[in-house]
Design a protein around this nucleic acid. Sequence first.
DNA 1: TTGTAAGCGTTATCAG
DNA 2: CTGATAACGCTTACAA
Lengths: 331, 331
Amino acid sequence: MVESTTTIYDVARVAGVSMATVSRVVNGNANVKEKTRKKVLDAIAELDYRPNAVARGLASKRTTTVGVVLPTITNPYFAAIARGVDDVASMYNYNVILANSDNNEEKEGKVIESLLSKQVDGIVFTGSSLHEDIRTQLKTARSAIVLAGMIDGDKELPSINIDYRAAALEATAQLAKNNKKIAYILGSLENTENVERMVGYQESLTNAGIEFDEGLVFEGNYDYENGKALADRLLAKGVTAAVVAIDTVAVGLLNALQAKGVKLPEDFEIIAGSNSSITEYSYPGLTSVNQPLYDLGAVSMRLLTKLMLKEEVTETQLVLEHEIVQRGTTK
Amino acid sequence: MVESTTTIYDVARVAGVSMATVSRVVNGNANVKEKTRKKVLDAIAELDYRPNAVARGLASKRTTTVGVVLPTITNPYFAAIARGVDDVASMYNYNVILANSDNNEEKEGKVIESLLSKQVDGIVFTGSSLHEDIRTQLKTARSAIVLAGMIDGDKELPSINIDYRAAALEATAQLAKNNKKIAYILGSLENTENVERMVGYQESLTNAGIEFDEGLVFEGNYDYENGKALADRLLAKGVTAAVVAIDTVAVGLLNALQAKGVKLPEDFEIIAGSNSSITEYSYPGLTSVNQPLYDLGAVSMRLLTKLMLKEEVTETQLVLEHEIVQRGTTK
DNA sequence: TTGTAAGCGTTATCAG
DNA sequence: CTGATAACGCTTACAA
């Protein structure tokens, strides 16, 4: 707890120049004589001067800070996205404010409000569904916005996604090779991504000549416990395979099934939805649609920098490649 | 992308008062007549005014922003801590800047520097070891600092921990009931927490009448792959039980062992070190020392608020309770 | 190439 | 209880 804030004035005095010049060298402005630059640099080193980013932000109206709002950082899915965001953020010298929303519309509204008051230059937003009020709030914000892993129905907000429909179709198709009763487990059908998944699922069923059974679709939350609770219900309906959009739920189901003595993949097959780290940690490993989560975050942040720096952006609706990673829960 | 920044002046004009008065009502100052307050509030609502936190930070020298630096948010251990930090941070109206350091001293130095330039009011720091330079940097910072899950040798920096020695002793003691060759796997022995663990481990061995064998102690990194690689080495030494300080490593070991046909807990027992979420997701679930990670973060942040608000703090070296959660990898 | 000076949107100190 | 007015530390025209 020392040093009584040395300012740009102190540096100017010591270097024998004006504060404007100090500002120029600090900001890498080319119009400074090499000799002067050196004097300033020396003074900076001598005084251990550190520019005050808050003052800078006020004067320049740019804070080099962005916000990332997500349901909860404890979910590996969102943690991976956040890491991607942070890595490219620091690459471009931005800091990121983390905001957990718990998927709760009110909290989402509050944290966005808070981020905007902090004058963040941009926001990467992700969650399980895009409520109308939040959409409006985001759209009318003066900061740049990018949605990560969410589709904006009107395609007005920039977003990065994978082709959920295709991924669901492929996963279902793989399970259809050996199964007739294939369940689909996902979050709320109120969000567009899940609607897309349903379309892919049904399309795949049709291709395989299996009749769609509404009773085999389960909506639910993000919890591990939710997955465990599903085991009995699936077994009761004679289900022998499931694609589970949310990894934590997939692991819950997997473990509950094994605890009942069900053998995987022999008696039951599972394909998880996002290939977050836990699909690798489970035993057996979960075959999984590989959503490139880290990239999702990284690309979102990259797009955000373009938006913030007013670079030209031709395409604001990006679709990343996906694939299915084969592990131990499929034959 | 609208609204051309409405300021405190605009509100003052519309409300027919001075900006000082607006500032007072915004900051909940009691010295404002009820009638005036209402006028101001109405103007604020009408103009949809949102105070500029950057300007506020510059004028007041308080940013209501803190930083949390950790190795990587993708590790569930740190994610849980971060969540604890964020929850009590928002409770006290602080925002938190997330900084991944990858356990790299240079990066740690950089992010701390960056946080300080952003004038954060405080920093919660965590990592696997406290390098000397970082220690100095932290100690001389003008912001409040709290270490989460790290011991400062000199006890100069405030910190929140569990009793690592006792935890190691208890875990080893439990394994010693059925095993003679008990390995201990942890991060670098350069950090105090791990030295403490070693002491507890050896003490427990002595209690059980088992001779300490240096060859049964394994240092390593945080990676899942590291755990997998350990399986063969342990088996080769005839080890039948291990306490593994890092959960990701424990899961790696568990899965590699199972892949080799080793039955747990029958043929091999494992106790993991932190009870992060993945110890529950693994199959079988990992018996685990319960480090109260969320609380670790929450209590750290709470202590930080006290430090930042200059509240009286009597004890800066806090030790949280731990316990051993029994799951499927012990008899 | 360098300096002067006017903000940036608040808070905070004094008067009144 | 309310209003001026001077900071806060920096960026950014505009001059020189």
